[in-house]
Amino acid sequence: MSEQIPANPLIENTLNEFFAVFERAQSSASIDNVYGEPITYGDSVVVPIASISQFFGVGLGVGTDQHADQQDGGLGGGGTARVKARPVALAEIMPEGVDVHPIIDENRALTAGLLFAAWAVFWAARTLIKLFK
């Protein structure tokens, strides 16, 4: 039967701390990332608006070789992170009111349209084959 080692709070504390720091940083930075720095343009103020997605992953491990004559061990870890911003709109704040101009990402729209067209052609062809078989 394997020997049970006492629970070491090292990894749990490290992970919790890591997540807490990241979450605090994220909640304060989110809104500033979504709404960019205002740009004054004549009487108007232009605010760039984006949608932000963030991802991070972390893994840690501590191991000991209890079968060796002298107890041996090691600690390792790794992580990855990604931040992606997509423009959504431009807000124009004028003396007479606020106007929001949506930004159309043509590449994204074209990709989605082409994927849908390919899917539609596949299903149309399949339907025709089934009808005239």
Partner: peptide
């Protein structure tokens, strides 16, 4: 967090998406 006889391992992922809703 995983606990084994010869060590400890842990990991986590975090994802967030912030989108503008209104002015």
């Amino acid at each position: 967090i995983g606990l084994k006889a010869d060590g400890l391992s842990g990991g986590g992922v975090w994802w967030s998406w912030a989108r503008p809703t209104a002015l």
